[in-house]
Structures are given as structure tokens and as C-alpha cells.
Design a protein around this nucleic acid. Structure first.
Lengths: 230, 230
DNA sequence: GTAATGACTTGATCAACATCAAGGTCATCC
DNA sequence: GGATGACCTTGATGTTGATCAAGTCATTAC
């Protein structure tokens, strides 16, 4: 039996659907897993074809599309590396793929046998619960992130970032360590380094924070909190 | 045995964790479910308290926070109506809550007995798989939505919206019905009606689309697609 | 008929940010 | 010691899109 490249195993392990599967069970799943190298434009599966596998994209881009009457093709999803696709179809026990999957670029995908995976989950409610837990946690995180990014302006997003990292109930001064170059944090909250710098300066001018090399001193947490009307 | 108000049952059913549970199983879960009315500021549970239930917020806002050494309180999450919380703790089988939950406003929450819920899932791998499937689908959707909203400017978001709704592979003209007032669609893609109107006009000027009352005629799908570098 | 309403458009103005360009500081390397 | 390169800051300028205000239709109300 051929063994899956450790890098690929790693890739699977870092996906929520496989993260918490125990060793033996994971080995079982690996038995049903193989690597597909796709050329740009190549079709991975198409509508109505029996749904026997789902997939984890390692590299490249995959387009999921739907063919309606008269050949109209609607793009349902574009898959990026690290994500699984068609797992929803599998988990719902559908007979055939209701969509088409086509490589938009050269791509590497792992083809995971549905039956093996389902077998593992079916036999281990523990694994199931863990997976549900992971997905649920990820959902919470994503919704938070979305909320933050939808905060209208740069100051708000910065403040929200600072408060997330400290958030006393108290009114005391607090250090926020920024364990990463400022430009990284800037991109995390979706502003340019320049704007980030200027925003920090503004908050400093208003005597709300003080900026150091390795950390930011939040001088007035409660006032900042007010600015977010939380 | 007291029966849970149908409205509340409805609320549960529209959450992914309960959506696909069959009738009997759902009844079992309901046996372990009760309503809590919280006053603003009231504490629902606190750190280290045994974790016997998780919750679905029906109305109000709940703050989830973490108490570290020396009384520093860090806000981990703000829960909004429709969402569950503490389910991750439960599903991971943790003994006690690692966080505090406090009502930020008057709030209505459903308290769901962990043991009952887990029992149901444990006995039905089918239900488990359905739940995983739902969560997974929701994740895909959210990630898509995030991507769209992170598209830098209004034209991009509008184009992305249009393409999502048609997306021929072909180059032919296509109608996109907009089954909702324009201002609704505008808010969907996070622009004001004014900007929406102007953006449509621009695309019309470039001969890419044509605007009608009930639909938009996309005259050059492939050119639009290029503009998104997909 | 006239008035009132609601959805959309259009124009003018303004604030927020990105971008471009030019320094400044600091650590590392030769 | 001087050169190099990362990272950050600062200033000038341009674009984008929100906001305010006014105007167009079409529909419904009186």
C-alpha cells in the first residue's frame, strides 16, 4: 500500500475535518486518499457523476460551477488552497455530484474516499463531536473577523484590535504587546502601514495611547471602548 | 413536563446545530432545554463553574470574557441573537466553563442541556454528519461573503455580485434579474444607493451592461470577469 | 385633477484613505 | 567607517465613496 507524502498528511491534519481524528482512524482515511495533479482547465468531476470522494485542495484554484438548462454555467464557488470541497455533498449522502469542478490553474488536490471517511466518523461519535466543535469555533471566529472588518474606518478597526488584546473591565493603563512588525498588524486590520502609523499618531495626540517599539500603552481603555459604543 | 414555546423551538430549528435533528431526537433535546430571562449585567455562568449546558441567544447581547491573573478581563466574544455559545466547550467535553458570560443588555437565552444533546448526536451518526455538513456549508458561504466584501471598491463588488448571479462560461449577453429593489442590493454589497446608481451608470457608459427596471443586461460577461482577474 | 409618497437619479461637497515620494532610524555586513 | 536594507514616519496629492440636497418619475390617495 502506497503511503501518502507526509507533507500532504500535514495539509490534511491542518484542516478542521481531519484535525481531531485519532491516529488509527486517520490511517484508515489515508487508505482511501490519493493525490491528483490537475492541469489548468482539467475537469476533476462533473455533474451527475457518482459522488464517491471529496477533496482537499493543496495548491491552485478550483472552480465549482453549476450547469443549468441551455448550457448556462453559474459559478458557485472558487476554492482556495487549504480548503475542502464537495464534502457537503458527501456528508449529505447525495448520490451524484450536483456541480462541476474544474481546475482554473494547475492544481494539486487530495482525493478522499467518502465511504472511508464516513465510516470513521460513524464509528466514533467522539470524533464527530470534535469536528463539530472545530467547525463551530471557526464559525465564531470568522463572524468576529467579519464584524471587525466591517467597522467603518481605520481608527475603529485599530481600536477594536487593541481592545481585543487587552480589555480590562477596569480603567487602568495596559500594555498591548504587538509581537509582530507594525506593517503586519496593519495588514491584519486592512490598512496601509502609512495609515496605520498616522492613526496611531492621532490616538496618541488624543492622549488615548502611547506608542513604543515593542508595545502600545493603552492609557484610557474605557474611553476607547466608548468609541466603539460597545 | 413543560413544553418549550413554539417560537423558541423555531429559533432553535433555524440554528445549524438543531436544523437536521429528527423529530424524536429533537424532542429529547427539548426535554433538557429551558428559557432564561437575563437582566442587563446579570451573569449567566462564570469561569470554573461546571459546564453542564450550552446556550442559544434569542434576544439581546452576551459578552464572553476571560479572567486572567490580577483580575484582567479580556473580552473573547460578543454574542448576537441567533447564535449559540459555549457549545464548543461542551463538545470538547470540558469540565468547567473556561470563560464568563454576562448579559450586556436584557437578554433571552435558551439553556440546552449538554448531556441530552450529546446523547442524541452520539446515537445518531447520521445527525452528526448532517450537522457537520451544515456547518461546513456555512463556512464556505461565509468565506465567500468575506472575500466579496473585501473587494476593494464598489465596482468590483457590484461586478462580483453580477457574475455570481449569471456566470456563463460563454461570452453571450445575459440577463440578471434583480428580484429586489436596487437599494436592497446596494446594501447587500455595502454601498449607498447613490453610489450603486452611479456605478451602474459607469458600467453602462463602458458598454459593459445595460440597466432596466427589473433586470440588468450584462453585455460582456468575459470582460467583466477579466476585471476581477478571476 | 392635485397632492403625497417612495424609488431612483444627479450634482456638489467633504472626509477618509491609498498612493507616491522622500526622509529618518537602526541593525547588519563588508 | 560606510554601505545596505528593513521598517517606520511624514508630507503632498489624488481617488473613492458617503452625505446632503434637489429633482424626476410613477404610483397611490384624496
Amino acid at each position: 500500500m502506497q503511503v501518502l507524502n507526509p507533507d500532504f498528511q500535514e495539509a490534511m491534519r491542518s484542516n478542521f475535518l481531519f484535525m481531531d481524528i485519532n491516529k488509527e482512524d486517520f490511517a484508515t482515511i489515508l487508505q482511501g486518499t490519493s493525490v491528483c495533479e490537475l492541469r489548468a482547465g482539467e475537469i476533476l468531476f462533473s455533474q451527475k457523476q457518482p459522488a464517491t470522494d471529496f477533496f482537499l485542495l493543496v495548491e491552485g484554484k478550483i472552480k465549482i460551477s453549476l450547469l443549468s438548462f441551455e448550457g448556462t454555467q453559474k459559478v458557485v464557488d472558487i476554492i482556495n488552497p487549504g480548503n475542502t470541497f464537495a464534502e457537503v455533498i458527501i456528508l449529505n449522502g447525495m448520490e451524484g455530484y450536483p456541480v462541476n469542478a474544474k481546475a482554473l490553474s494547475n492544481a494539486t488536490v487530495l482525493r478522499i474516499n467518502a465511504q472511508k471517511y464516513i465510516q470513521v466518523l460513524s464509528n466514533s461519535s467522539e470524533a464527530c463531536l470534535k469536528v463539530i466543535s472545530r467547525l463551530s469555533a471557526r464559525l465564531h471566529w470568522l463572524m468576529n473577523e467579519m464584524e471587525r472588518l466591517s467597522l467603518h474606518n481605520a481608527s475603529y478597526r485599530l481600536i477594536s484590535y487593541l481592545l481585543e488584546d487587552i480589555h480590562h473591565e477596569s480603567v487602568e493603563e495596559t500594555k498591548v504587546m504587538l509581537g509582530a512588525p507594525k506593517r503586519i498588524i496593519a495588514s491584519r486590520i486592512s490598512v496601509t502601514p502609512e495609515t496605520f502609523s498616522r492613526t496611531l499618531k492621532n490616538l496618541t495626540k488624543d492622549d488615548l495611547i502611547e506608542v513604543f517599539d515593542e508595545h502600545i500603552l493603552v492609557k484610557n481603555p474605557s474611553k476607547l471602548r466608548e468609541m466603539l459604543f460597545i
